[in-house]
C-alpha cells in the first residue's frame, strides 16, 4: 500500500511537472510572436495615452501648466493616440 502511494506522489510531483514543461516542445512550430504586432500592449498604450491626456487636462485646470505648454503637449499626445488607433484598426482587418 505504502508503495503505491509513493508512486502516485512521484507521479504527481515529478512526472506531471516534467510533462507540463516539455509539452510545448512537441507542438507544431508556432509563429514567432516577435514579428506580430502585440495587440494587448497597443491597447494598453492607448489606455495609457488617454489617461495621460486626462491628467494633463487636470494639471491645466489646477494651473500647474501654462496654456502654451498645455496645447503643445496635448497635441503631441493626440497625434500619438491617433497613430496607435490607426495601428489597432489596421490590425483588426
Amino acid at each position: 500500500m505504502h508503495f503505491i502511494s509513493d508512486y502516485i506522489l512521484v507521479f504527481i510531483f515529478f512526472v506531471l511537472p516534467v510533462i507540463f514543461v516539455i509539452q510545448p516542445l512537441f507542438l507544431n512550430k508556432i509563429n514567432n510572436l516577435k514579428n506580430k504586432i502585440d495587440l494587448p500592449s497597443l491597447k494598453r498604450k492607448k489606455r495609457l495615452l488617454y489617461r495621460q491626456i486626462k491628467e494633463l487636462e487636470m494639471e491645466f485646470d489646477i494651473g500647474n501648466i501654462n496654456q502654451k505648454d498645455f496645447k503643445i503637449s496635448r497635441k503631441e499626445l493626440k497625434i500619438e493616440v491617433s497613430e496607435v488607433i490607426t495601428k489597432l484598426n489596421s490590425n483588426k482587418i
Binding site: 514543461v21 516539455i22 509539452q23 510545448p24 512550430k29 508556432i30 514567432n32
Partner: peptide, 14 residues
C-alpha cells in the same frame, strides 16, 4: 522558436 519560450516559461513556473 516560440516553443522554447513556452517551455522556458513553464520551467520557470516549475
Amino acid at each position: 522558436d516560440m516553443r522554447l519560450f513556452l517551455t522556458g516559461q513553464r520551467l520557470s513556473l516549475g
